[in-house]
Amino acid sequence: MQKYRTDMYEGMIAETVTVPGHDGSVINAYFARPLGSGPFPGVVLIHHAPGWDEWYRETTRKFAHHGYLAISPNIYQQFGHGVPEDIAAKVRAAGGVPDDDVVGDVKESLGYLKSLPQSNGKAGIFGTCSGGRQVFLVACRTKGFDAAVDCWGGRVVMSQQELTPKYPVAPIDYTKDLSCPLLGLFGEEDQFPSPQQVAQHEQELKKYGKTYEFHMYPKAGHGFFYYDRSGYRQEQAMDGWNKVWAFFEKYLGTSDKR
C-alpha cells in the first residue's frame, strides 16, 4: 500500500443515486467514488439491521477515501421512506427483508459498479450485522464478486425452526457455492453469532476447501466497529479495518494511498 503524503491530491464525490433493484424495481443507493478516471475496484456495502443509516453512508465514503467505487443500496426501500431507525423498526416487525430480494438488489448494484468507466473490473462486498449474513448469502448465490467481508453476521447458522418463507435456507447450507475468498471478523463475546456458530461455519468452509480468513476478537461483542454504540472496541476495530483493507487490496487491487 502506498502511503498518503501531504502533497498528494485527493477528492471524492458522494451522492444519492437511483439504481436497479430486485425484480425490476428502482431503489436508492448511496454512491461514493474517488475523483479521477481510475481504474478503481468496486465494493457493494450491505447495510445493517439498524437500517440505511448515517454509519453506512460514512462507511461508504470511507471506502471511496481508500480508493474504491463504493455503493450502498437501500435494501429496505420496499418498506417505504422515513427516518432510518423507523424503517428498521418496520422491517423488524415484519420479520425482515426476504433473502431473495437482497440477493437481487445487490446483484444489480454489482452490475452498476462494473458498468462504470472507472471500474478495474474487480468488485468486493462488505456488510455488518444482518448485512454480514447477507454478504455470505450473496457471495454464495451470485457470481462476479472477487472478495467478501462478513463482519459478525448472525444467523448464517440457522435451526429448522428459524427458517421462514423469507429465509427459506440457512446460508451455511450454501457454503459449497461460495464464489470468492471470504474474510470474517467476529467478537468472542457475541451471541449472534456465537463463537460456536462461527466455528461451525469455519468447519463447513474447510470441508469444501474454500479460501477464507476468520478472526475472532477477544473482549469484543457484536458491532465492535460502531463508534456510535456501546459495543465499540477501539483496538479491535482498528485491527479489523486494517484486515479489511489488506484483504481487499489482495483480491481487488486498489489505488489506496492512506
Binding site: 423488524r92 451471541q191 449472534f192 457484536h222 456501546s230
Partner: peptide, 15 residues
Amino acid sequence: ASVSYDHPDHAQAER
C-alpha cells in the same frame, strides 16, 4: 406492539 430481542440502537447493552 412489536417485541424483539436484539441489539439495541441506543441502550447501553449488548442485547
